[in-house]
C-alpha cells in the first residue's frame, strides 16, 4: 500500500468516526429533549443538523477522490465502499434525530402525555445498537456486528407493543390524540434509527469478512 493511500485512508477513518460521534451526540440529545421536555435542547439538535450534512458531503467527496486517485483493491476497496454506505446511514440517523427533536418541540406545547416505559426501553436499546454497531466498525468486530443485527427483532417487537399501547391510550382519551400521534412518530423514528444501526452492522460484516449478509438472514447466524 502506498504511503499516500495509507494517509488518505487514515484521514477518512478519522472523518467518519468524527461524523459518527456527532451523530451519536445528536441522537442522545434528541432523546433527552423528548424525555425531559427540554425544548431548548431540541432546537439545538435541529440547528446542528446542517453541520452533519456538510460533513457527509465532505466524506463522500473524499471517498470518490481516493477511488479515482488510488484505485484501491481488496480490503481497501471494501473499506471505502463501507465508509460510503455508513456515511449515508449516519446522515439519515441524524435526520431522524432532528425529526424526534421536532416532535419534542411539538409535545412541549401539547397536554402532558405519559411516555410509555417501553418507549424508554426501546430508545435505550436503539441507541445501544447504534453505539455497538459503530464500536464493531472501529474494532472490526464481526461478532459484535452480528449481535447488533439480531437485536433489531427486539426493537421491532417494542415498536409493535408501543403502537398498540398508544392506540389504546388515544381511544380512551381523545384529547390525547395529537400528543399520541407525536409519540407514534417518535416510535417510528426510533425504529428507523435501529434499522440504520443494523445496516451499519451489516456493512461491518461485509468489511471484515467480505460476505454480504444484507437481506440474507441465514448468513447472520453463521460463525458464532
Amino acid at each position: 500500500m502506498s504511503k499516500h493511500l495509507e494517509r488518505d485512508l487514515d484521514n477518512l477513518q478519522r472523518d467518519i468516526v468524527s461524523l459518527a460521534s456527532q451523530v451519536e451526540e445528536t441522537l442522545y440529545k434528541a432523546i433527552r429533549s423528548l424525555e425531559r421536555r427540554e425544548a431548548d435542547l431540541a432546537r439545538q439538535v435541529i440547528v446542528g443538523d446542517a453541520q452533519i450534512d456538510e460533513q457527509e458531503n465532505h466524506i463522500e467527496e473524499e471517498c470518490l477522490k481516493i477511488l479515482a486517485l488510488h484505485q484501491p483493491v481488496a480490503i481497501d476497496l471494501r473499506r471505502i465502499a463501507t465508509v460510503l454506505k455508513i456515511n449515508t446511514d449516519l446522515e439519515r440517523m441524524a435526520d431522524l434525530a432532528v425529526d424526534i427533536a421536532e416532535r419534542a418541540v411539538a409535545l412541549h406545547r401539547l397536554p402532558l402525555i405519559p411516555i410509555p416505559n417501553d418507549l424508554q426501553r426501546m430508545t435505550d436499546l436503539a441507541t445501544s445498537m447504534v453505539r455497538q454497531s459503530l464500536d464493531a466498525f472501529v474494532h472490526l468486530d464481526a461478532r459484535l456486528a452480528r449481535r447488533v443485527i439480531r437485536l433489531d427483532d427486539e426493537v421491532d417487537r417494542y415498536n409493535r407493543e408501543i403502537i398498540d399501547e398508544l392506540v389504546r391510550l388515544m381511544q380512551q382519551s381523545p384529547e390525547m390524540v395529537e400528543a399520541g400521534l407525536s409519540l407514534f412518530s417518535v416510535t417510528r423514528h426510533v425504529e428507523r434509527i435501529a434499522d440504520h444501526a443494523t445496516n451499519i452492522a451489516e456493512d461491518v460484516v461485509y468489511l471484515v469478512e467480505g460476505e454480504i449478509v444484507r437481506h440474507r438472514p441465514e448468513a447472520v447466524e453463521v460463525s458464532e
Binding site: R14, S18, A20, S21, E25, V138, H139
Partner: peptide, 18 residues
Amino acid sequence: AAAVGRKLWEVVRQRPIQ
C-alpha cells in the same frame, strides 16, 4: 487492555473530548 495502541478518537467517540 484493548485500547492501548489504538487511536483515542477511535476508542472514545465524544466530540467535545476530541
